[in-house]
Amino acid sequence: MKRFLPPTIVAIVLLGLWQWWVTAFEIPVFLVPSPVRIAQTLVADWALLSGALMVTLKVTFLSLVCSVVLGVAVAFALVQSRWIETAFFPYAVLLQVTPIVAIAPLIIIWVQSPTLSLVICATIVAIFPIIANTTLGLRSVNPGLVSLFRMNGASRWQTLIRLRVPSALPYFFGGLRIASGLSLIGAVVAEFVAGTGGTGTGLAYQILQAGYQLNIPRMFAALALIAATGVLLFVLMGWLSHRALGGWHESARATDSAF
């Protein structure tokens, strides 16, 4: 409870100020709609917006799953040898530093399915922290434990499963938290690019449409949904990591006041 009360108070105060400011200074609704107006729009346009939300959520989750599966696979490949890492890691960086807005139009042209093209774009955005963190984690193994495994005649497989993978978990979950946010950003950005091409009906497309129609309350309502999704994803990943690392890792214990 202690964790949720302060941010809730801040939210109520800010929304209250916003409402008061808009009302007191008679700000026109096409410039800044009041929180109450946005809430009303959210309810009134729910059929439209919830459909769009589902599309965005689908792209976000699919790309997050792809990032995790591919990212972890790439990380496992990279740690097989220093040579492989030296040879291929720069290309992972290349993926990271290329702006998605620049490649998205190409991918949308090349890939027939709109959903697939959006998922590819969002995956490109989200995959890097998974690769980087998991690689680091798989390498960050206590050297004493490595010696212990060697002295007991552990196979390469046993060392991987019993030592490297558990050692990498905290790093992986750190990457997952960042990737979850990035997959949503990737989904929205890709849709902005794709939306101009007439495909997709996600939240980003709703924002574009509402912008053309000067339907500012709907723009804000869609924005609020994206923000809420982002926060929810972050909380969900935090919970997952806490469940997986509970008890043994510092990061999972950080919220226990006793420590």
Partner: peptide, 26 residues
């Protein structure tokens, strides 16, 4: 058997599992 400078235990495993490790590996 080797005892290291630090305890070198696996933080994710309980004490019993840590102690059992050499037997598991063998």
């Amino acid at each position: 058997s080797f005892v290291f400078q630090e305890a070198t235990l696996m933080p994710w495993a309980r004490v019993a599992a840590n102690v059992r490790l050499p037997l598991d590996l063998q």
